[in-house]
């Protein structure tokens, strides 16, 4: 089988869901057939498909964490990121493709959280594929109406004095949240800080980890 290099552990360290030895489903038949037809028609090649899978596997929350940690430690970069997040992340060396990105900064006064009520738009070219809950009916339905209740389910309880800004990702832009830098991290360098930045904190459903919980 030509794709053995994909059969090891996933980026999260879990085994991939076993699909090779389960009964073939109708939709898997369709995937195989569509892929073969696209290759035979010259639309793509097997190598291009494997390269695209590898490119998506390389995109994961660690990329976003590096961006956030730099914004925490480099004021000029933070300004560039808030002005044009696509350009700033590309300048850092991340291949985000044609994605148009907006960075949203969380502070004591404002908490941003991102949802896509119409489908499941996500900054996949920076953070990788979205978590399953992001695509769920519950998250898509409730976040625009009762964001504080949804955040509480994620363990984020905000004071009334903090304004919640929900961003419904309805069209061409994608969003990454810059969580607030945790207290007790004075003097930390960007690499050490990046370990505090979780995927959920960049969606707005989490906070960055604190030094004692990291």
């Amino acid at each position: 089988m030509p794709h053995d290099h994909h059969d090891h552990l996933s980026p999260s360290g879990h085994p991939y869901r076993a699909d090779d030895d389960h009964p073939l489903t109708y939709w898997q038949q369709m995937e195989i057939a569509v892929r073969e037809l696209l290759i035979e028609k010259g639309v793509t090649t097997a190598a291009e498909i494997n390269a695209q899978i590898d490119a998506m596997d390389a995109r994961n929350p660690a990329n976003g964490a590096a961006v956030v940690a730099r914004a925490w430690t480099d004021p000029a970069f933070r300004e560039d990121l808030l002005k044009d997040a696509s350009a700033a992340t590309r300048d850092m060396g991340f291949d985000i493709g044609p994605m148009k990105l907006i960075a949203l900064e969380n502070t004591a006064e404002v908490h941003n959280v991102v949802v896509c009520t119409l489908c499941s738009c996500y900054p996949r070219n920076l953070l990788g594929l979205p978590p399953d809950w992001y695509k769920s009916r519950a998250y898509r339905s409730r976040t625009v109406k009762e964001p504080r209740k949804v955040l509480a389910e994620f363990g984020v309880d905000l004071p009334d004095a903090t304004q919640v800004r929900v961003h419904d990702s309805t069209a061409d832009m994608r969003y990454v949240v810059i969580p607030a830098r945790p207290a007790g991290t004075d003097g930390w360098d960007a690499d050490r800080l990046a370990a505090l930045v979780t995927r959920d904190s960049m969606i707005g459903t989490g906070l960055a980890k604190t030094p004692d919980s990291a």
Binding site: V144, K145, E146, P147, R148, D160, Q163, V164, R165, V166, H167, D168, S169, T170, A171, D172, M173
Partner: peptide
Amino acid sequence: RVRFTMAEVWGADTSHPDDTIDAEIY
């Protein structure tokens, strides 16, 4: 990008009327 208050979208008796929703509208 248009910003709406929760009060405008869900009515004045919503729990946090000054929280907001941003959406991209053509």
